[in-house]
């Protein structure tokens, strides 16, 4: 499984998961503008080494995966101890099950990283209007907190209680997500394998 797709075109120097790139670029509401299948330009020189991590071997990918996990762990618990305290056996089992798409073994370990509540924050990023929004969200443990609360908090310039949310799509793993979905549940069950929620917002009507 390719977790990080290292695309390097003139316009896109990002370390994003391939599923996230799909959500950002897909345009299923407007088939004329649909960009599928992707046209990918591959360059064999001038690697943008100041922008992208060079893929040397599978260990590069493994290190990147674990440090991203640590960052999300730090977000939820204020430290990266849950990853640091995983036994070597658990670490390799987590990585190997991810590589082999072994759902059961992956969740045997990964649930140890997500199950303990309360969380300090949600480990989430919102991709909206060509920007990435990532902040603290301490209300995560309050009763009845949904995706809508997160959007009202992080995107307050564009959204308020009176906004017509039907004019937007909130996309996660290629799915349109209801803004009334409980946020903690999303974090525990719909995070990417790096334990971040990568939510794309698209406006579909003015």
């Amino acid at each position: 499984m390719v977790l990080y797709k290292l695309m390097y075109t003139n316009v896109y120097n990002k370390h994003y998961a391939v599923g996230l790139l799909y959500d950002i670029f897909e345009n299923s509401q407007n088939s004329e503008k649909s960009i599928l299948p992707w046209e990918i330009t591959i360059h064999f020189s001038d690697f943008p080494k100041n922008k992208l991590l060079k893929f040397k071997n599978l260990d590069t990918l493994k290190d990147t995966y674990f440090t991203t996990l640590k960052e999300s762990d730090y977000m939820r618990y204020g430290n990266a101890n849950k990853i640091m305290c995983l036994s070597l056996e658990d670490q390799s089992s987590l990585w190997n099950s991810l590589c082999k798409l072994d759902f059961k073994n992956f969740w045997n370990i990964n649930s140890k990283l997500l199950a303990n509540t309360p969380w300090l924050n949600i480990s989430a990023r919102i991709y909206y209007n060509n920007t990435v929004i990532q902040e603290r969200f301490v209300d995560i443990n309050e009763e009845g907190i949904t995706l809508k609360n997160l959007i009202l908090s992080w995107c307050s310039e564009d959204f308020n209680e009176n906004s017509n949310f039907d004019n937007y799509r909130f996309i996660l793993h290629g799915l349109n997500i209801s803004i009334d979905t409980p946020l903690l549940w999303l974090g525990q069950y719909l995070s990417y394998p790096d334990n971040w929620l990568h939510i794309v917002i698209k406006q579909i009507k003015e």
Binding site: T68, K70, M75, N79, A80, V132, E135, R136
Partner: peptide, 18 residues
């Protein structure tokens, strides 16, 4: 914070906020 390496494409302001 002696803990993790952020990805080079993360926005400094987001890191500061978090």
């Amino acid at each position: 914070n002696n803990s993790f390496s952020p990805s080079p494409d993360e926005i400094i302001n987001n890191l500061y906020k978090c």
